[in-house]
Structures are given as structure tokens and as C-alpha cells.
Computed example of a mutant assay.
Amino acid sequence: MRKKILYFVLGFLCFLISQPLLRLPLLHKLQQTTGFALAFMMNPLLIQVLIALSAGVFEETFRFLFKLFFLKPDKCAISQPILFGLGHGISEVCVFLLPVVAMLSISQLSIALIERILAVTFHVTVTIAVWNGFQRNKKVLFLLLAILLHGMVDALIPIISSVTTSVFAFYGAFLAVDIIMVIYAFHSRKYYLKEAIQ
């Protein structure tokens, strides 16, 4: 049980370090530069997609580093990435949703909760994708795939926004991604140790 709590806590810390402590301050400084302002004016969609990709770079790289240095050995039970992903996702909820809960109406809160459930589900499944690289001895390949996948999912926001503002379009796209990722995660169980062996 202590190990499982540790997995969750490490996931929680992983998000805090990769986003509020590193990526977001760096992004804020970059956005204050003249070069960024000009680039955004010339091609806002491209810049938004690159910003989305940066989220994948930071979050997945830190997921990878936490596994590499703090969660040894490489081979583990699938509960490890699930709990780490839950910690990561719930940390994001605490940072972005909890501070504004009091300002949301019931309908807005319902929409926000659905979005967070979809996001946490993605965090769990993409953690499994990163961990699969350790289970299959293809660490860098799976890290790169996770970065690309995370970046593409986040890029759906500006891409869909350029076409429609429909909430159903956004959530439908994220739900489709989650369903595919959950199926992938389910089939990934074969790469992991049984709980009794760990």
C-alpha cells in the first residue's frame, strides 16, 4: 500500500514540476517577447499547435524521467502507471479547476468535471504508453510517441476552435481519443508483471 501511495504522490509531483514550476513560467516569459507576438500575429494556429506540443514535451519527458530515476526496476505491475497517471491527472485538476470552482455555475461545473474526467483518463493511459517503453525495452521510441500523441491531443483545441465552438465537437474528439487509449491500455496488460509477482 505504501508503494501505491508513493506512485500516486510521484505522479502528482510530476505534473507540478513539469507544468506550474517549469513550462508555464517559461511560456509566460516567451509570450512577452516581441518575436513571439509577431509570430503569433502571422500564424496564430501554428503557434497554438506548437504551444500544445510543448505540453507534451514537458509532461511526457518528466513522466519518463520519474520512471527512469525514481520507479525502478523497469518491469512492474500495471498498477504503477495507473496510479502515477491518476496522481498526474488529479494534480492538474487541483491546479486548474479547484481555484475557479466557486466562480462556476452548476452547468459550467458539470462541463468542467466532464472535461477533467476525460483529461485524467488520458493522463492514465498516456502514462501506460510511456511505461510500455520500459516494459518492452523501447524507452525512447515510446517517449517520442507519447510526446507526439499528447501534443496532438492538446492541438485539437486550437484546431477545432478554428472551425467550430461546439462543446460537443471538443468533447466528442477527446472521448474518441480516450476510448482508443483505454483499449490500447487494456491490451498493454500483457507487458506487465502480475501484482502477486511484484
Rank of each mutant, 00 (worst) to 15 (best):
A155C: 02
C76R: 15
A155Q: 02
A173G: 00
P44A: 09
V130L: 02
K72E: 12
N132G: 06
V130E: 02
R116V: 10
L10D: 07
A39Y: 15
K4V: 05
F70V: 09
F96K: 14
I78Q: 13
L143H: 03
T165A: 04
I183C: 10
C14F: 05
F134I: 12
S161R: 06
H187I: 12
L156F: 05
V100C: 02
K194S: 11
C76T: 15
V95N: 13
H123K: 13
L45Q: 04
L13Q: 06
E195V: 00
L46R: 07
L45H: 03
I114G: 05
L65F: 07
A129R: 06
T61Q: 03
V95R: 11
E195D: 12
I157M: 03
V101F: 15
V9S: 10
A52N: 01
I17K: 10
S79F: 06
K67T: 09
D74P: 13
H187K: 15
S91Y: 12
S54D: 00
L98C: 13
C76G: 14
L38I: 14
L21R: 06
L46S: 05
T165E: 02
L144R: 03
L24M: 02
F8W: 12
F142D: 02
K139G: 01
S18M: 03
Q108C: 00
P73I: 06
L53A: 11
L143P: 01
Y184G: 04
A102C: 02
L175A: 15
L21V: 09
A77N: 11
S161H: 02
Q80N: 09
F64S: 03
E195G: 03
L46E: 02
L104P: 04
G172F: 10
T125L: 10
V124A: 11
F142A: 00
A55H: 01
Q135M: 15
L50K: 04
L175M: 14
E92W: 01
F12S: 08
A37C: 05
G11R: 07
Y192R: 03
Q135G: 07
L113T: 11
T164Q: 07
L83V: 12
F70H: 08
S161P: 00
L193Y: 02
I114S: 06
L113A: 13
F174G: 03
I5E: 10
S162N: 12
I157Q: 04
D154N: 15
N43Q: 14
F142H: 09
T125S: 10
L71P: 11
L145T: 14
V182E: 06
R116D: 13
M152E: 00
V140C: 01
V126D: 07
A119R: 05
F15G: 05
L113P: 03
E115W: 11
L30Y: 08
L113D: 03
S79W: 13
R116W: 11
E59I: 01
K3Q: 09
M1C: 00
A102I: 06
K190M: 11
V167S: 04
I183N: 08
I128V: 15
S105D: 01
A112C: 05
L16P: 02
P81Y: 08
I159S: 00
I78C: 08
T33K: 09
I183S: 10
S107R: 07
I183P: 03
I160S: 04
S91R: 12
T121V: 14
L13K: 07
L141R: 10
